[in-house]
């Protein structure tokens, strides 16, 4: 047996080699923020079930500067998630044809982003209406 050692290129840090891969990893990293936000809300639901004093403590924690700063990060991350999500939707869904022509990816992305803006605005207006 010969001691042949074939060269195998290391895959360490593969995603730092190309801006496309870096964007890919940032997009995947938004999942951490989505989970973190779900955890914040889940904790709120648990505290709500535990009673008023427990819930008040959760609410007070949300008012702390740390929480506000954290939610700014969450907000930025989720905006990027929305943006990147609708970029990949055309790549993951089966192609749709309208009038014999394939629906262009940019149209699907644009429709998704408009839908997100619309639903968000409706949600905010609904709460402004309830709050007033």
């Amino acid at each position: 047996m010969s001691a042949r050692r074939p060269y195998i290129r290391s895959m360490d840090g593969w995603w730092r080699r190309d801006p496309f891969f870096i964007r890919y990893m940032i997009r995947e990293a938004t999942a951490l923020l989505v989970v973190a936000y779900a955890a914040v809300l889940l904790l709120g639901a648990i505290r709500l079930a535990q009673g008023e004093s427990a819930y008040e403590r959760w609410l007070a924690a949300l008012r702390s500067p740390w929480s506000l700063a954290f939610h700014l990060v969450l907000f930025a991350g989720l905006v990027y998630h929305t943006w990147s999500w609708f970029q990949i939707v055309p790549k993951t869904m089966p192609s749709i044809s309208v009038g014999g022509k394939k629906l262009q990816p940019a149209v699907i992305t644009g429709t998704g982003l408009v839908a997100a803006a619309f639903v968000s605005l409706v949600l905010l207006l609904l709460l402004l209406f309830i709050g007033s």
Binding site: V34, Y37, H71, L74, F75, L78, V79, H81, T82, W85, F86, G112, A115, A116, V119, S120, L123, L124, L127
Partner: peptide, 11 residues
């Protein structure tokens, strides 16, 4: 989360 996530965080 893409549709309402950012607005929920903001709220």
């Amino acid at each position: 989360s893409a549709l309402i996530g950012p607005m929920l965080v903001l709220i």
